[in-house]
Design a protein around this nucleic acid. Structure first.
Lengths: 215, 215
DNA sequence: TAGATTGTTAATCGATTAACAATC
DNA sequence: TAGATTGTTAATCGATTAACAATC
């Protein structure tokens, strides 16, 4: 529809990196930067950085560069980091707990509201102010509370079923840690973190390097 | 050098997915498949799947398709999943512990040999047969034991320093969970799992969908 | 054999890079 | 003003898709 709908995923994946480096510059009191400087930090070409940013607007000043804080705020706005998000985590096993404890998210306005699990030993306990509730009560909970993002940390065997239940209750953003591709309707966005696939790629490149050394 | 060195990363990222779906087919006793069938499962085009596989060899039979088990074994060989790997985890906080507990890896031959941490309360305890050792003893440990892959789960403030120490001790494959880009020499491969960036992309697409609905 | 599906080349598409005019 | 760096168009590069001959 509008311009932004056609932005390629590759661009979107680079934005968080710009955001992070701009935050670092900001923290050390640097308030001016350039595409060349950002290129050195990120490893992306200066040309690509300018192209990326100009998908969303002209944030720089010709002959000068970019104002660090301003550019950071603009990227935050593009990504939506200027808003608050409520999160639930389904599956309070190792990964679910790790996500709930992950302090990196609290830099932005993400709040883990609750976790859900079937394990009676976990139900009733809490992690950083977020209660672990009975997985049977998810639907009831979602009827009452508005939740933006659901994190799936269940075993893969139930992940599809859990996802469908969540979508039925109005969830449209899923962060999926189960090693399974969820089949979801168009209006639901799924972001996968497939640790297995990541480790397998690493393994491939590790072996490539070993081969090279033996030549 | 040889053909494999020029395989694009996009291809390598798809291989673990093929491997996973072939495993599922195998499990339910299906022993023949085709690029069309794999296309339906993975969402990649049949043409792309054939292209991908033919980077490594002709694993199919014209007019027939692919033998599920054979193709799975071939992909395992390409990725190096037919070998054993010893892993250490540096940083035994939430994420480090979650990785150590993650059973998904044990399907292949990955073994978490030890974890390292500075926290005296953790040192001496163990997770699934892997001891948590004093982070000060990493170098000594690596001098004795051959380790293939190091997982960095430390705070980002020390991740670069830890990585350099590991590389000095001969580590050449790093799985990095710290939200930082490690500056490493050419002969070290780093696979990043940047949860922040993943969540930020998710946030972008979530907001895009909301906008679309309000039009 | 006829039908099916691979392997592979050619065509298309999209993303990245290069170049430079605009302009601060 | 001169120098610098953006914004933007054009050129290049690489990845995906289409097409089809090979062949089981």
């Amino acid at each position: 529809m509008d311009k932004q709908n056609r932005i390629s995923p590759a661009v979107i994946r680079r934005l968080p990196k710009y955001y992070r480096y701009l935050g670092e510059l900001n923290k050390v009191g640097i308030n001016k930067t350039s595409s060349r400087e950002l290129s050195e930090m990120t490893g992306f070409s200066a040309s690509q950085i300018r192209q990326d940013l100009n998908n969303f607007g002209g944030f720089g000043q010709q002959g000068f560069g970019y104002d660090v804080e301003n550019l950071r705020n603009e990227i935050a706005k593009i990504l939506g980091l200027d808003k608050k998000y409520k999160i639930i985590i389904v599956g309070a096993g190792n990964i679910g707990q790790a996500i709930a404890n992950y302090t990196g998210f609290y830099e932005a306005d993400y709040e883990v509201v609750a976790l859900f699990d079937k394990n009676p030993k976990l139900i009733g306990t809490s992690i950083r102010n977020a209660l672990i509730l009975d997985a049977d009560d998810i639907e009831e909970f979602l009827a009452k509370e508005h939740i933006d993002i659901a994190v799936i940390c269940t075993p893969k065997s139930v992940s599809q079923q859990v996802a469908e239940q969540l979508v039925k209750c109005g969830i449209r953003a899923i962060w999926n840690f189960a090693p399974k591709d969820l089949k979801m309707p168009e209006h639901v966005y799924v972001e996968n973190v497939h640790l297995n696939e990541s480790l397998f790629s690493l393994t491939y490149y590790y072996n490539q390097m070993r081969k090279k050394e033996n030549e």
